[in-house]
Design a protein around this nucleic acid. Structure first.
Length: 755
DNA sequence: TCGCCTTTGAAGCGT
DNA sequence: ACGCTTCAAAGGCGA
């Protein structure tokens, strides 16, 4: 969307813009029917947001601007009627006063902000912190109950053991729990509900109410300011000058301006001038918040891997949850803009010439800047993921060299598979004429494009991008989708429980998680082969017993015998499968009987409106002709005509797909004793990778499945903006064990992955 | 020591 | 208007 935000503009008008609009716009984009009830809900929310902002504006107008913060506090106090606008964080410690954990973290006051919060139990003496701004007593005094007070039990899965609960916690919207914000910030404070929860938590204490501010904080520059020379972690440095992300602009701007009299001085000042960092966007805020949790749960330390996980989780978040972060980000930008009216991202951009030069050199040397330029629109399958996303394509050459044509994400490897299907992602520019879907579908997909991309991107695409990616993908929450399938423990879950060694193995063995539907493959030792994922495996839902039948899951990887690169490739392709509507074949088996019934459940992914979820529950005895070609399916498949169109259109799977699927199917059949999956071609669209993990016992798997289902449904509900959103959890739980991945798929996975 | 990786989003610049 | 690029956080890893 166009950027409405003008940095130098005065404040208010653009404040409302981007985030909310974007969010809801996305919603609208995703859903074909904008008039759907879900949208109505969204619109309502949106209107609320607008209203909130309008209130803010009006208040600003009414009140002289003593300080942005002041206004913000005040306005937010009144404006935070919206649950998701307000940070609904319920602060576990329940301290009456305190800063939001995140804020505390930013503030970085060790003495006061102890993780234990004991010190904070009693607000520091007023003298400890003299906020530059007068705080509105109202803001301080008001207490706001958590808007999303998820009871502990809400995400507590009774059926789950502690272990599973932990897993479940993955999906627990951190936003709604105090812990979520607290985790990343060990030094978190008790969060003061009295403060506007939305208050920009990254800002320097000086901006905060006096409650916890200390004198040195007051003097501190904003946390955003860091030594230009080094990449300092604002949180890590307790130094008075670097504690806070955003130092007071007075410190930076004024000092710099005073110092700069001549050009030489300016130069030197530029170097000395504290580096004002960009305000964090919603995702960054989310990452900061959730990183620690992910690290703790997954025992992963590598940020790249964690970020992948977080990216998927981000997509898995409900819109409302995301909206919260968007709101926070918006406020940060707002505050940042107020603090540094003259600041521009360009300022920082000028600093980072190195990287650009480097890229330039690469690009210049290889002239590989864009895949589009290189391959043209006709060969989108050759494009790397970033290019598909219409972003930079830096590593293309490397990937190509390494893989011999395999794109970095591997998703692009249509060579192996499909022709066209794969990517339509970019269909913005070109509509694929392939078998993939109708033009209409493409158009529809295009509408959804951004959203879908992001979803896919977060959810699936990353799998094959790089080894590391693959590795992380295992751990990614996205894989949680796999839980839907009792047989496939979520890699993430595996990682959670796995020892480091196990994790490494897991990482090595890339499991492809396709969409929610199920993909999976993972062998503890062997890498999972894409082929495995490629094959369609019936989704087994709610059948814990299936697990036992699939001990051989491990064999899957080996069976295909595909190269690692291929594996990656396939994995990506499959990752896409989940996107968009796709029939989900649910295999219901009676424990011990070995009988299985295949049920086609349309997976709605983002396009829930297209289908009635209730209908999806209806078992379909015969394998539908509806086929999606999984191969080359990009995670962003939502855009992919395959995702939606294929559901409605019958496609002839490519021979390659057929073969791969047949092979995979065959394997799956053997493993699962599923007799009904005979028509490979029919299945092409939806692959479900059944992940079998030797690591988990059936009970665990079952539990995981329940969780995933639960989460998925919840997510889907969120995306659908269904009014039932709140109820889904319960419903899900009841259903989770049951069977219908469809809803689950529709959700998080769905959106992200789906089944 | 520095840059990369990896994610999403925001913003600026260029076409 | 669109596309491309950079930067924001984070910490391990490699050069």
């Amino acid at each position: 969307m166009p950027h409405t935000h003008t940095r130098h503009g005065s404040s208010g008008d653009d404040l409302c813009s981007t985030d909310e609009v974007k969010i809801f716009k996305d919603e609208g984009d995703r859903e074909d029917d904008k008039i759907s009830s879900e949208n109505l809900l969204v619109e309502e929310k949106s209107s609320l947001i607008d209203l909130t902002e309008s209130e803010e504006k009006s208040q600003k107008v009414a009140r002289p601007d003593h300080s942005p913060v002041f206004n913000k506090l005040d306005t937010h106090t009144t404006s935070f009627n919206m649950g998701y606008l307000v940070s609904p964080y319920s602060y576990a410690n329940g301290a009456a006063n305190g800063l939001p954990v995140t804020m505390a973290n930013k503030i970085g006051l060790p003495p006061f902000f102890c993780h234990n919060a004991d010190p904070l139990a009693t607000p520091p003496p007023a003298h400890c912190g003299i906020p530059p701004y007068q705080l509105d007593p109202k803001a301080i005094g008001l207490t706001r109950p958590a808007l999303y007070p998820f009871a502990a039990g809400q995400y507590a899965y009774p059926m789950l053991g502690s272990e599973m609960s932990q897993v479940a916690s993955w999906h627990t919207p951190s936003v709604y729990s105090a812990s979520s914000f607290r985790t990343p910030y060990p030094s978190s404070l008790p969060i003061n509900t009295t403060l506007p929860s939305d208050f920009p938590f990254r800002f320097s204490p000086s901006l905060l109410p006096s409650v916890h501010a200390t004198s040195h904080h007051v003097l501190n520059s904003h946390s955003a300011i860091v030594a230009s020379s080094s990449k300092q972690d604002c949180g890590s440095h307790q130094d008075s000058t670097t504690n806070n992300r955003y130092p007071r602009n007075l410190d930076t701007k004024n000092t710099s301006s005073n110092q700069s009299n001549d050009s030489s001085k300016d130069i030197s000042n530029d170097k000395k001038k504290p580096h004002i960092k960009k305000p964090l966007n919603a995702f960054m805020l989310y990452m900061k918040e959730m990183r620690a949790k992910v690290v703790a749960e997954c025992t992963l330390k590598e940020s790249a891997a964690i970020n992948q996980i977080l990216g998927r989780r981000w997509h898995a978040l409900g819109r409302e949850e995301q909206a919260k972060y968007y709101e926070l980000a918006r406020r940060e930008r707002q505050l940042h803009m107020q603090m540094y009216p003259d600041w521009s991202s360009r300022t920082n951009a000028s600093r980072g010439k190195k990287r650009k030069r480097k890229q330039d050199t690469n690009e210049g040397g290889n002239n590989m800047k864009k895949c589009r330029a290189r391959f043209g629109l006709d060969q989108q399958n050759q494009w790397c993921k970033p290019c598909r996303r219409k972003k930079k394509c830096i590593r293309y050459m490397e990937a190509m060299n390494g893989n011999g044509g395999i794109l970095e994400d591997g998703s692009g490897m249509d060579d192996h598979g499909s022709d066209d299907d794969d990517d339509d992602e970019d269909d913005d520019d070109v509509k694929l004429n392939g078998s993939c879907g109708s033009v209409d579908a493409d158009e529809t997909a295009n509408k959804i494009d951004d959203d879908a991309e992001s979803l896919d991107h977060g959810s699936m695409s990353s799998f094959a991008q790089s080894p590391s990616t693959t590795t992380t993908s295992l751990a990614s929450p996205l894989n949680m989708i796999n839980f839907i399938n009792p047989t496939t423990p979520n890699p993430a879950a595996l990682l959670i429980n796995c020892s480091a060694t196990e994790q490494q193995q897991q990482q090595r063995s890339t499991s492809v998680s396709t969409t929610s539907t199920s993909v999976s493959a993972s062998s503890g030792s062997g890498g999972t082969t894409p082929s495995t994922s490629s094959t369609v495996s019936p989704v087994t839902t709610g059948m814990p017993g299936i697990n036992s039948s699939i001990p051989g899951a491990n064999c899957i990887p080996g069976a295909s015998g595909t190269s690692s690169s291929q594996t990656m490739l396939l994995g990506n392709r499959f990752s896409h499968l989940g996107m968009g509507l796709s029939p989900v074949f649910t295999t219901t088996s009676t424990a011990g009987t070995g009988l299985t019934t295949n049920k086609l459940e349309p997976f709605f992914g983002n396009n829930i409106s297209l289908n009635n979820l209730n209908n999806s529950q209806i078992p379909i005895p015969v394998m539908p002709n509806i086929i999606r070609n999984p191969i080359g399916a990009n995670p962003r498949d939502i855009n992919n005509p395959l995702s939606i169109n294929q559901l409605t259109n019958h496609h002839q799977p490519s021979s390659l797909l057929k073969s791969s699927f047949s092979q995979h199917l065959h394997q799956q059949q053997q493993l699962l004793n599923v007799t009904h999956m005979t028509t490979t071609s029919a299945v092409n669209n939806k692959n479900k990778v059944v992940v079998a993990s030797s690591n988990r016992n059936d009970a665990t798997t079952t539990a995981m499945m329940s969780i995933s289902s639960h989460h998925a449904e919840k997510t889907s509900a969120a995306e659908c903006h269904s009014n039932h959103e709140k109820n889904t959890d319960h419903h899900q739980q009841s259903n989770a064990s049951g069977k219908t991945p469809s809803s689950a798929g529709a959700t998080e996975t769905g959106a992200i992955s789906v089944s």
